[in-house]
Design a protein around this nucleic acid. Structure first.
Length: 924
DNA sequence: CTCTCCCT
């Protein structure tokens, strides 16, 4: 039933509603009338009830009784698949209908919902996925969100979405159930929805506080404290003990100690010690459900808090800690610190021993410690990366995360981190720097495809890249196995045999990813040869979890199905390993690392330091550069599932992320082109340490200029063109003229020449090779195109040359004059260098007159050599100098003295009335 | 020098 049913459907479905009765022993039966009335009157109802109240099984029946489930399904969500199935089974059984008819369930890979189904129990993930296809959830007339207190990411996203949906679906009813008394928050969130409390059907639990290590003379550690607590409970009477610990390592420490003390005879007798954690093999886990005679001590992680109900537990020992998943804002990785559990979690643990009889819970911490703990565990949405949620929300057109009605909205920085990860995966259309942070973004084509894949966005990104590289088969195998729990089992007692069995698939390539592909190929080949039972046995013998192998195959099939709808085809021939790794890298760009020297430590993105976990092929002799499928910080940052990469791959895959920096551009005479050293950084890692690249590819204008400057202006090119020779001559010529006429500004400098070439040579000429190609034509059309023009360079100052004769005409034969202008001695005038041979032929009196252009300088210079006493009489100096220059402009006055000094002396005497003699000057 | 748990 994908659409709202027709009137005929509704009539038919109305006849399907079974008679409903309630087991009277369940506490919820007592509140039946109140619940019926409240649900009938309100769109949203909050139901608070501890485990054992029967709310999960009875609420769907109450809804049926109210006539719900006819016009649309009653949807009932659970956080876990097992719970969805067992609750469906129970409700179906209580209604006397076969599973899959009136009551069905749907979890990933299993759908037992029929056309006549009225109650559909499902995982919350299933309902979230359905939103993609049915925005208004029109298939449902009622939705029950169970176990909302667990506050998983799915639950918070779902509650937010339903909040947004309720005003558009006035006919939709929502029931939110929660085990704890934190119902006020939900009620407030849903506009003051009524809260109905249903009592639990559990026995009293005697909570005892037994802290350790608080007194100075109490030197017990956790193991000792647990041993003491076990002793105390043994004195209380029979019954199994459930111990909550933070992790596998602690479990094995305690197990070793208890087993040793049992065999010593010092500890409790007839006792079986059973570890319990999720990663354990299926067979090992199942031992907690086996019948047994003696006593049991079950040492468990948080799995026993919600996921696995250990039967027959009378006592609980709570060490008070757990590993809590958190998000490192600095390194953008998952952290798993051991933290004190919340009060709600501690109470949930205690409740595990009050299910069949009164129980005792020993807390290995003080009552004051308990009182100081946070009441509730922080919801997952505040502790995790939000990329997947943001991707889904954007695909649903709910882009503005800040205004989405979350029960507890995530921090703006967490949203920014999620967006950053999606940007890393290129899921969004590029936005400009000035786009405000809150602005809604648009998914790129890749992002839209990514949103359709039911896996982590990083893994989805790999699959999409794989299509381009022709390795979709291999990458989908890897993406599938990375999405589920590792199918390889490593039972504690047979560690060596298991490791050896798994080691067969480790290849020469040192790639944990290709190891998975080899394992897959092996399994598929065996599966074809063997019967179902034989294959199941093979899995067991080879230390593989059969159910997870099946899930791996199911997920692969699901991906294959969805990707074929995206026009992605499986490759039929084995892909090149490099291509597989390149595709994988596209999803792991911020999870690469560079080995620090010869150590086993890696420097990762954002300066993180990590090591490769023991199970990896890269652990012993790691490559220089690796990528890791997972980075998790525990006692330190660890990489899990890794392979060697070439950092250049990352450069190619991350054009949107790399930072490039450049050294000084360099003209290379050998190749006749300009290059520059390029350095490429990705998240702070030098994926290209330094390489020469053509400057023209980065900055054509600069490369053009570099070519002109070095090849043509500075002559760093062997090739001689006619214009080069010509220009050399013009420049020498103009330079000497400029010196003669004392116009230093007219001496063409390199910049002037460069400008000339730049205006005449097209921009795309950036190398000698380019130039030759261009000049072959351009030079033929206009051979003088690149010839410098003397007159142009002199800017019309050629006339001034008359005042600066090239030779001294007064002499016979005329003497060439060498204008060697020394700017450092401008005040002192100029030096005329005469060939030594003619020195004694020069008439000294003529010497001062040779260069009219220098007359004023010379007058001033001579004037300055007058004795101070005399100069004082010649004030204002400028006036007397000016008159003398004017008078002597054309050389000696007719009839006047021939010597320059004498002539100047006479002029000054005349203009000032003060006698000045030629001998008063001291020109040396 | 390895790490709680769950889901499409």
């Amino acid at each position: 039933m994908a659409r709202r049913p027709t009137p005929e459907d509704i009539e038919r479905r109305r006849l399907l509603v079974p008679a409903v009765s309630y087991p009277t022993e369940l506490p919820i039966a007592a509140c039946r009338d109140q619940l019926l009335a409240t649900i009938a009157d309100h769109q949203v109802v909050i139901v608070a009830g501890e485990t054992g109240s029967g709310k999960s099984t009875q609420l769907p029946k109450l809804c049926l009784e109210l006539g719900r489930g006819v016009e649309g399904l009653i949807g009932h969500t659970q956080p876990r698949r097992v719970a969805a199935r067992t609750i469906a089974e129970r409700v179906a059984h209580e209604l006397g209908t076969p599973l899959g008819t009136t009551v069905g369930y749907s979890v990933r890979f299993t759908d037992r919902v029929g056309a006549d189904t009225l109650v559909k129990v499902m995982t919350d993930g299933i309902l979230l996925a359905e939103i993609q296809r049915d925005r208004l959830l029109r298939r449902y007339d009622t939705i029950i969100v169970d176990e909302a207190h667990e506050r998983s990411l799915n639950i918070d996203f779902l509650l937010g979405y339903l909040t947004h949906l309720l005003p558009q679906r006035r006919d939709l009813k929502l029931i939110v159930t929660s085990a704890t008394l934190d119902t006020a928050r939900f009620s407030r969130h849903f506009g003051g929805a009524p809260v109905i409390e249903v009592s639990g059907r559990s026995y009293p639990v005697d909570v005892r506080y037994r802290p350790y290590g608080e007194d100075p003379d109490d030197d017990r550690d956790q193991v000792g404290a647990i041993a003491d607590a076990v002793d105390e409970l043994y004195r209380e009477g029979d019954g199994d003990i459930l111990v909550f610990l933070s992790g596998e390592r602690e479990i094995h420490d305690v197990a070793d100690y208890l087993r040793r003390s049992i065999s010593d005879g010092a500890g409790p007798r007839h006792t079986e010690v059973l570890p319990l954690y999720a990663r354990m093999s299926a067979a090992e886990q199942h031992r907690v459900f086996d019948q047994h005679t003696g006593r049991r001590v079950i040492l468990s992680t948080n799995v026993a808090e919600t996921s696995i109900t250990v039967p027959g537990v009378r006592y609980v020992i709570d060490a008070g800690t757990a590993r809590i998943s958190r998000y490192s804002r600095r390194l953008k990785v998952q952290r798993l610190p051991i933290e004190p559990v919340s009060q709600a979690s501690a109470n949930q643990r205690a409740g595990r021993c009050g299910r069949v009889a009164p129980g005792i819970c020993i807390r290995l911490y003080g009552e004051d410690d308990f009182a100081q703990r946070v009441p509730f565990t922080e919801p997952e949405i505040l502790r995790t990366n939000l990329a997947s949620v943001i991707l889904q929300m954007t695909a649903l057109g709910l882009g503005d995360i800040a205004s989405f009605p979350f029960v507890e909205p995530p921090d703006a920085r967490s949203v920014a981190d999620g967006i950053a990860l999606l940007d890393e995966l290129a899921a969004f259309e590029q936005v400009g720097e000035d786009t405000p942070p809150g602005a809604s973004r648009h998914l790129s084509r890749l992002g839209k495809r990514l949103a359709r894949l039911p896996i982590d966005p990083r893994l989805g990104r790999m699959v999409l890249e794989a299509d381009r590289l022709g390795c979709a088969r291999e990458v989908m195998i890897v993406a599938a196995v990375l999405s589920i729990q590792d199918p390889r089992e490593r039972p504690a007692e047979k560690l060596e045999a298991a490791t050896a069995a798994h080691q067969r698939f480790a290849g020469e390539d040192g790639s944990d990813f290709l190891t998975f592909v080899r394992l897959w190929d092996h399994l598929r080949a065996r599966q074809r040869e063997l019967t179902g039972n034989q294959f199941r046995r093979l899995c067991r013998d080879e230390f593989l979890n059969y159910l997870r192998v099946r899930e791996w195959e199911d997920l692969f099939s699901q991906l294959r199905h969805i990707t074929s709808g995206l026009d992605i085809r499986l490759n039929t021939t084995p892909a090149h390993p490099d291509h597989v790794h390149q595709a994988l890298l596209s999803g792991l760009l911020s999870q690469i690392g560079m080995r620090e020297g010869e150590t086993k430590e890696f420097r990762g993105a954002r300066n993180a330091k990590f090591m490769i976990g023991r199970g990896s092929a890269q652990a012993k002799r790691p490559a220089k550069w690796v990528m890791a499928a997972e980075l998790v910080e525990t006692n330190r940052l660890w990489a899990r599932v890794a392979a060697r990469i070439q950092p250049e791959w990352a450069e190619e895959l991350a054009p949107h992320l790399v930072r490039r920096s450049y050294g000084e551009p360099l003209w290379e005479e050998q190749s006749g082109t300009s290059t520059v050293i390029e350095r490429v950084m990705l998240y702070g890692l030098p994926i290209v340490a330094g390489r020469r690249v053509l400057l023209a590819r980065l900055d054509r204008a600069l490369a053009h200029q570099m070519f002109v400057r070095h090849a043509l202006v500075l002559g760093e090119w062997e090739r001689e063109f006619p214009f080069v020779q010509h220009n050399h001559e013009v420049l020498t010529d103009v330079a000497s003229i400029a010196e003669r006429i004392r116009r230093l500004d007219l001496i063409p400098n390199d910049d002037d020449v460069e400008r000339f070439y730049l205006t005449h040579i097209p921009d795309d000429v950036t190398s000698t090779r380019h130039f030759e190609r261009w000049w072959r034509d351009a030079g033929r059309k206009n051979p003088a195109l690149l010839n410098l023009m003397r007159d142009e360079l002199l800017k019309g100052q050629a006339d001034a040359l008359e005042e600066f004769p090239a030779e001294w005409a007064d002499h016979e034969p005329p003497l060439p004059l060498d204008y060697d202008f020394d700017p450092a001695h401008q005040d002192g005038g100029m030096t005329v260098r005469l060939p030594l041979l003619v020195l004694n032929q020069v008439k000294p009196e003529a010497f001062g007159w040779m260069v009219p252009g220098l007359r004023e300088d010379l007058v001033t210079a001579y004037f300055k050599t007058l004795p101070k006493t005399l100069r004082r009489e010649l004030i204002p100096a400028a006036e007397h100098i000016g008159q003398a220059v004017e008078a002597l402009r054309d050389g000696p006055r007719p009839g006047g003295p021939l010597s320059f000094a004498a002539a100047l002396a006479r002029e000054l005497t005349e203009s000032s009335g003060q006698t000045v003699r030629a001998s008063d000057f001291d020109p040396h």
